[in-house]
Design a protein around this nucleic acid. Structure first.
Lengths: 122, 122
DNA sequence: TTGCTTGTTATATATGTTATAATACAAAGC
DNA sequence: GCTTTGTATTATAACATATATAACAAGCAA
């Protein structure tokens, strides 16, 4: 599992790891039940501390995206929230829509991009 | 200018202020040339420190959304980036699309929401 | 000129977050 | 028993956030 980390980013490393795993699940590169790398393995591969990966996994677990058992390792959960689009997600999306508009991205262009990203085409 | 701040949020206050101003500009509640409240006034109204508002304004200025002159106060910029959709914006949007998908939000529903937010209808 | 308002800069302080490091523990499978 | 797994603990360093206070610089008006 390749992690592309930007250490100069303002986005924390554990968040970057979390985001990439969420993206991988959504785009079905990771399927329910699939095993994801052990904390120590992932930490070694990514060149970060074990606890940083642990923080990412703890977050993913709390959000319901993954499950882990002592010895069985960590796997992608079988069922997700189905909670619909929460309030936090909507507000984040609102800001992005605003920024896109102010960057002179047309509505058509913006919508097209949203669709492609949703379908995992890009 | 009303600021709704969530002090318990994980989003920093200065970011919340910045976001709400960006939203206001995009939805044309703030027009180019419009004056935005003085740092000290905004700080008073919002119940936060002057330096917190200053940080938000400095960020907005650096991003090109506002301009300020010593005595003239701070105003919404006349022209914006027109830089198209940057890389950072796209990655943020990708994560949101992934989360929406995993929350069982249909593509149609997601696209509809993106459009409404872009047009400032909600 | 004098004084006020404006953004800007600086310093200090407190608190929380992020990331690393090094251990240690508990549970499950071989 | 041994290894592998996630988990928890403690310590430390660096950075971010927010407050508080003060001072500075520029422009406008009385």
């Amino acid at each position: 599992m390749l992690m592309k980390l930007d250490f100069g980013s303002d986005v924390p490393i554990y968040q970057q790891i979390r985001n990439q795993i969420v993206n991988a699940i959504a785009s079905e590169k990771l399927l329910p039940g699939d095993k994801i790398p052990a904390i120590r393995v992932m930490a070694d591969e990514a060149g970060v501390n074990m606890m940083t990966v642990n923080k990412a996994y703890a977050l993913l677990k709390q959000e319901g995206y993954i499950k882990s058992e002592r010895r069985g390792g960590t796997v992608v959960a079988e069922e997700f929230g189905k909670g619909g689009l929460g309030e936090g997600l909507r507000e984040r999306l609102r800001v992005i829509a605003s920024e896109a508009r102010l960057a002179a991205v047309s509505e058509e262009e913006f919508i097209k991009l949203c669709g492609k990203l949703y379908r995992g085409e890009i």
